[in-house]
């Protein structure tokens, strides 16, 4: 298998697989946009280098990189028509008028907006502008396709539809794609590979489900999906002790050794409630809030001062009343022990 390696500065050492859909994910201010802009050549790294296809990229100016990029504001030129916007990178490269027109039609077809070439940008809705920006970035068959929070301006429903569309488009074209987002659901939907960042550093990367199931740190476990973090002590490579009970874990962060103090990441769906008599004293909790969402029931419990979230599947039709005390049971071979 071939790799395009993209290396960026400071504490970041990142190798990105070719032809994949990569999401840079993290809270705002984590440096993900800066990293993307360095790859684009819009920011210059103070040290270190970026290598693409085995060639150093650091000193190549943006306009000679032959990448495609969709900006957060979309950056569609208001003084040009839709066709002129999409044709801009082709015009710069000196294509003939006929060739440009043919390619523009092809791209409009690709983003399901045929025949709108002569319209003005101002006549388009938000979702349509999105498609035009994508078409424009893909016009030159870019070697790398970059998107900076591309869907952030859209409302929730449209955003979900566009996520699927973008993913399908990428799969069809096979272009290596890097998307910056702060929305973990978006990353889970689209990415083949997620890179979790915080404070300018990479915390973890890998296929989304793997990161979800096998987080290495409390931050990653909490950022991807929701979780309960319980203090624990490592007993062996697959067993930990928390609140006096032993739990078999599905994953143990590589850095952890027996007797280390760590956190046990317990997803709300990996907890179940059992009659309090069946649970040791230390695993009893009081229900403080309960809401039935139809598809499942969400409970919040007070466990010795710590809030615990539990999701109950709908088949267990039982009433959980506020103020009741129940025992907590952690599923074996489901949770991950993570470093703090």
């Amino acid at each position: 298998m071939e790799f395009d390696s993209v290396r960026a500065i400071d504490n970041i050492d990142l190798v990105l697989p070719q032809g994949q859909f990569v999401c840079l994910l993290g809270p705002s201010g984590c440096g993900k946009t800066t990293l993307l802009r360095m790859i684009a050549g819009l920011n210059t790294p103070t040290s270190g280098e970026i290598i693409f296809d085995g060639e150093p990229l650091t000193d190549v100016p943006s306009h000679e990189r032959n990448f495609g990029m969709v900006f957060q504001s979309l950056a569609l030129f208001p003084h040009l028509t839709i066709a002129e916007n999409i044709g801009y990178p082709l015009r710069i490269r000196g294509f003939s008028k006929r060739k440009i027109a043919a390619r523009v039609d092809e791209l409009l077809e690709l983003v399901h907006m045929p025949g709108v070439g002569n319209r003005q940008i101002s006549q388009l809705s938000g979702g349509q502008r999105q498609r035009i920006a994508i078409a424009r970035a893909l016009a030159i068959d870019p070697k790398l396709f970059l998107l900076d929070e591309p869907l952030s301006a859209l409302d929730a429903k449209l955003r979900e539809a566009m996520q699927i569309e973008l993913k399908e488009l990428q799969r069809k074209l096979g272009v290596t794609t890097i998307v910056v987002t702060h929305d973990q659901r978006e990353a889970m939907t689209m990415a083949d590979h997620v890179v979790i960042m915080k404070d300018g550093q990479i915390f973890q990367q890998g296929p989304p489900l793997e990161v979800y199931k096998k987080p290495n740190t409390a931050f990653v476990a909490d950022f991807i999906g929701s979780t309960n973090l319980m203090p624990c002590r490592i007993l062996s490579s697959d067993t930990v002790e928390t609140y006096g009970t032993e739990v078999k874990v599905a994953h143990l962060a590589a850095s952890l050794k027996p007797n280390d103090q760590a956190a046990l990441s317990v997803r709300p769906e990996d907890l179940s409630l059992i009659p309090k008599e069946d649970a040791p004293e230390s695993m009893r909790a009081k229900i403080t809030f309960s809401v039935d969402l139809g598809t499942h029931t969400e409970l919040q419990l007070d466990h010795g001062g710590q809030d615990i979230m539990v999701t109950i599947p709908p088949q267990r039709q039982q009433v959980f009343a506020q103020g009741e005390i129940w025992g907590l049971q952690i599923a074996d071979n489901a949770c991950a022990a993570v470093s703090l």
Partner: peptide
């Protein structure tokens, strides 16, 4: 600032960006 940046990403040199994007805008 993303408008001239977009032009740069699409292959326009700084001069070309200035004359085809910044001035017309």
């Amino acid at each position: 600032p993303e408008l001239p940046e977009a032009a740069r990403m699409m292959g326009a040199s700084p001069m070309r960006t200035f004359f085809t994007i910044v001035i017309p805008l």
